[in-house]
């Protein structure tokens, strides 16, 4: 893996700044472009957040930006939309379902992926090389190719519409990336380490649990965030395998059905959308460094 600066914040300190380049770059233009793009990126989300705390009448009849005419008039804000969304639309249930789906579906592919990655990096078994090449190939496979056969298996086994169905599916779909990422990481650990452990009589299991895993905190964190966000934000897999059963529907599924049933009631939709975003945004802003690291490790191997 590379030693390049891996986080957005680290990166900012790492390099030259324009002020050091006293050359002909038109610096005001740089600021203008970056600020305009930042605005284009942040305004849509800001509009959503603002509307979610405005009364229904206000949301329907005036633009969200009008609140900034009197930014300190707090009477124009309300939490009623959130109360409605959590109370009446199944979002509260959806939130719990999302947690119930996401936690096991993050942990399992990390664990099984770590086992397999360790085997690919440091153990021997029949077909090791060929199997890993298949795993690399599967990184790009569109999930669509597996939906019908798996759904049929699930229907036959009575698993459609259960948490187990979606845990297993997300685990399997997450495994190629998990194995790929961790295998590269384990492979970069010094071999002498394991050699010494074996000479001391340690088993591969001991080498895995006592040496490899404790050294992989950062790699596991990157992978974990990736998988967590992927599962939390997934719509397709939930839509197919959980279908219409609202008792197990995660937030994304509830939100997409609200878009159908609440069409133009933006006070509901904005609050509902924000509920789906709270957890991933918290994860993103607190652990951004690991997220960036995962992206870099997964796409450009240094």
């Amino acid at each position: 893996m590379s030693n390049r600066s891996h986080s957005v914040s680290e990166a900012s300190n790492a390099s030259y700044k324009a002020s050091n380049l006293s050359f002909n770059m038109s610096q005001p233009l740089v600021h203008l472009v970056v600020i305009l793009m930042s605005l284009a990126w942040v305004l849509p989300t800001l509009g959503l957040l603002t509307s979610s705390v405005r009364p229904p009448q206000a949301v329907a009849n005036s633009g969200w930006w009008t609140v900034f005419l009197n930014p300190f008039d707090f009477t124009q804000f309300t939490l009623a939309n959130y109360r409605q969304v959590l109370g009446q639309t199944g979002m509260a249930r959806g939130f719990l379902n999302s947690l119930a789906i996401t936690l096991p579906a993050t942990f399992l592919p990390m664990l099984l992926g770590a086992f397999a990655a360790f085997a690919f990096a440091w153990l021997d078994f029949p077909g090791r090389k060929a199997l890993f090449i298949i795993v690399v190939g599967l990184l790009a496979v569109p999930l669509q190719i597996s939906l019908i056969p798996i759904l049929r298996l699930y229907s036959r086994a009575g698993l459609a519409g259960t948490f187990a169905a979606i845990w297993l599916a997300h685990t399997a779909y997450g495994l190629p990336f998990s194995v790929y990422l961790l295998r590269n990481f384990f492979g970069s650990l010094p071999g002498e380490l394991f050699e010494a452990a074996y000479i001391d009589g340690a088993s591969p299991a001991a080498a895995f649990f006592r040496l490899a895993l404790p050294m992989s905190g950062a790699a596991l964190a990157s992978l974990g965030i990736f998988q967590f966000l992927w599962v939390w934000n997934d719509l397709l897999v939930a839509l197919i395998y959980l279908g219409g059963s609202s008792s197990v529907a995660p937030l994304t599924l509830v939100l997409s059905s609200l878009v159908g049933s609440y069409g133009q009631q933006w006070h509901v939709l904005t609050a509902a959308a924000f509920v789906t975003m709270i957890v991933p945004l918290a994860v993103f802003f607190s652990l951004q460094r690991y997220f960036v690291r995962g992206i870099l490790a997964g796409s450009v191997k240094g």
Partner: peptide, 14 residues
């Protein structure tokens, strides 16, 4: 980078 963290469904509503 922030939109990478949220769901496509959420982004769709936004």
């Amino acid at each position: 980078f922030m939109p990478m963290a949220i769901s496509f469904a959420g982004a769709g509503v936004i």
